[in-house]
Amino acid sequence: MTRPVRLRVENLSKHFRLAKPLLLIGPTRTLYAVDDVTFEITVGSTLALVGESGCGKSTVARNIVGLQSPTRGRILLDGRDVADRANRKAVRRSVQLISQNPQSSLNRRRSILHAIVQPLRVHHLVDSWSQQVARARSLLEQVGLSAKYLDRYPSEVSGGELQRVTIARALAVEPTVLILDEPTASLDLSVKAKLLNLLRELQLQLDLTILWITHELDVARHVSDQTAVMYLGKIIEVGPSSKVLRSPAHPYTQSLLASLAVPDPSLRSAFRPLQGEVPSPIDRPTGCTFHTRCPQAFSICPRVVPNLTLVGQQHLASCHLLVPSPQSAASSASSG
């Protein structure tokens, strides 16, 4: 059964021009935060976007919700371009972002009730005050919190509960797409498990489409249908999570999995750290951007940018090792 595509990100690029250095000498430098990123998510499914900090995961999220506008590329919601003025209002309602830190995404001087009714007012969804309060009450119930939380302030509520409040606030406008930016990163293990369950139940109930940004590979493996791996602004591997996070094709994804601290002491031998650090997105390495850290890099890697190629069913990876012959890789790269 294939369901229609809800969210499609097409050749998305976001570049930042940096300020000229002192005395205005030298060329303007550009930071390539996101570079030619394409993926799509079908209705009711979850795509995990994984990678290390600074790889551009959150920039993708900010571009989708319209907090930033893309340098190039399009974002389509149900086939309609979100950049169109005519669609903008509907998009702002349909796509909701939940960030890592609930403390900083709520106004600490206003009550939780205020936080939840605000989107109802902005989108003119519910008129009377009593209806707004009733709606807020039922939203809190939906995320497993009792009505007594309505009068509380963010400082009086624990981190896990506060994250539920931001979820309730996001659901207030009946979105079809949730973008979760590291929603469980700051939570304790038992609280995290409860939140993962809640999000799963909500997704089934409301048929939500989810873009789940995370650096926790075990979480990604648990929650997602598809996984896209980013490195220095590019997607280097994308496909079904059962493939990408269990038998990855790209050396970077393999290294990520090898540096994952597995909660099983008998698997210590599999724990192999990757050398070096992520290079700066201002001075990206030439060719394959991963070649400076890649244990399998060879002559062509620093020279030619690899393209995403099909390595399995719906499974793409960009690595010269995966292309039949280096010659064909070189020709396809120069033509592309």
Binding site: E52, S53, H215, L217, S255, L256, A258, S259, L260, A261, F271, R272, P273, L274, Q275, E277, V278
Partner: peptide, 10 residues
């Protein structure tokens, strides 16, 4: 990050 965490742990 995961890869850096692994380096620090080793």
């Amino acid at each position: 990050d995961a890869t850096i965490q692994a380096q620090v742990l080793s």
